[in-house]
Nucleic acid binder design. Structure first.
Lengths: 127, 127
DNA sequence: ATAGATGCAAAGGGTTTGCACTTGA
DNA sequence: TCAAGTGCAAACCCTTTGCATCTAT
C-alpha cells in the first residue's frame, strides 16, 4: 500500500460516505461510480490492505459474510434486520458483561448482535 | 426426512455422543466410523434437514464457519478463547438488551460472544 | 525506468445440486 | 414396487492468486 491510485481513493471515499459496514460487492458497486473499471479483485486486495494498515475494521457477525467499516469508531454493536438484511450500528451498550464470565476466565472484549426488524421493515409489516 | 437409513442413524449418533458444536466435515469423519461410505453431500443434506425438523441447532459465531449442536438447550452464549480457540458455553445472560434497540426497531433475539482467555490459558499466561 | 497496482481469468475451498442408482417401507 | 435417499461429479458462490499490462513515482 505505497501508491495513491484512483481505485484506492474511490474505495476510501466509499467508507467516508457510508456509516454502516459494507460487503465487498457493495464496495465494488459504490466505488464504480467513481472508477467504473474497478475490479472485484482489487476491491478485495485493497480491503485487506486497509485492514492491515488499520484504516478499516473487519466486522464479523454470526452467519454473515465479513463486512468492512472505518476503524477507530466508538465502541458499538450491530442490529441485523431479518427482512432487508441491512446491518445497523447500535450506539448503546448493555453494560457490563463481567457477570457472564466464568470463574478463572479473563474477558477482554465482547460482541453483541441484535436481530429483528429495522424501523422501515417494521412499519411495512404493520400495513 | 421420512425414512430411517443407516446414514441418518449414524449422524444422529454423532450428536448423541458429542456435546460441543461440530463442523460438517467433523460430522462426516465421526459418522464414517459407523458408515464408511457416507458422503459429504449426504451429511450436508441431513444436517440441514435435522435443523428444519428442530433436532439440531445451527451455531454461528462471528468469523467462524457454521457448526451444529443438539437443539433444545437452555439459552446460552459463547466465550471464545483467543489463545486455544476453544468455544465455551456461557450459562448466564447480561439481562435486557432492550435499551440498545433504536426507536422504531423491533428486536426478537440477540447473540453475545465474549472474547478473552479461558481459565487454563489465563493460568498459563501468569506463569 | 521500474516496482507496485490493476484487471482478467483461472484456481481454491466450502456448500449445494442434477442425475442415475440404491434402498426402506 | 417406487418414491425417498444416496453417492458422485459438476455447479455455485465467494475469495484469492498468477500473470501480463498499466502506472505512480
Amino acid at each position: 500500500m505505497q501508491r495513491e491510485t484512483k481505485q484506492r481513493d474511490a474505495i476510501r471515499l466509499v467508507f467516508d460516505e457510508n456509516e454502516s459496514p459494507l460487503l465487498p460487492n457493495e464496495v465494488l458497486k459504490l466505488a464504480q461510480k467513481t472508477v467504473p473499471t474497478l475490479s472485484l479483485a482489487t476491491v478485495y486486495r485493497t480491503l485487506n490492505a486497509f485492514v492491515q494498515e488499520g484504516m478499516l475494521r473487519l466486522v464479523s457477525l454470526p452467519a454473515e459474510a465479513p463486512r468492512f467499516e472505518r476503524a477507530g469508531k466508538h465502541h458499538h454493536h450491530h442490529f441485523v434486520c431479518r427482512n432487508c438484511k441491512k446491518v445497523f450500528e447500535v450506539h448503546a451498550c448493555a453494560g457490563s458483561m463481567q457477570k457472564m464470565v466464568p470463574a478463572g476466565f479473563e474477558m477482554d472484549d465482547h460482541e453483541i448482535t441484535l436481530y429483528g426488524l429495522c424501523a422501515d421493515c417494521s412499519k411495512q409489516s404493520k400495513n
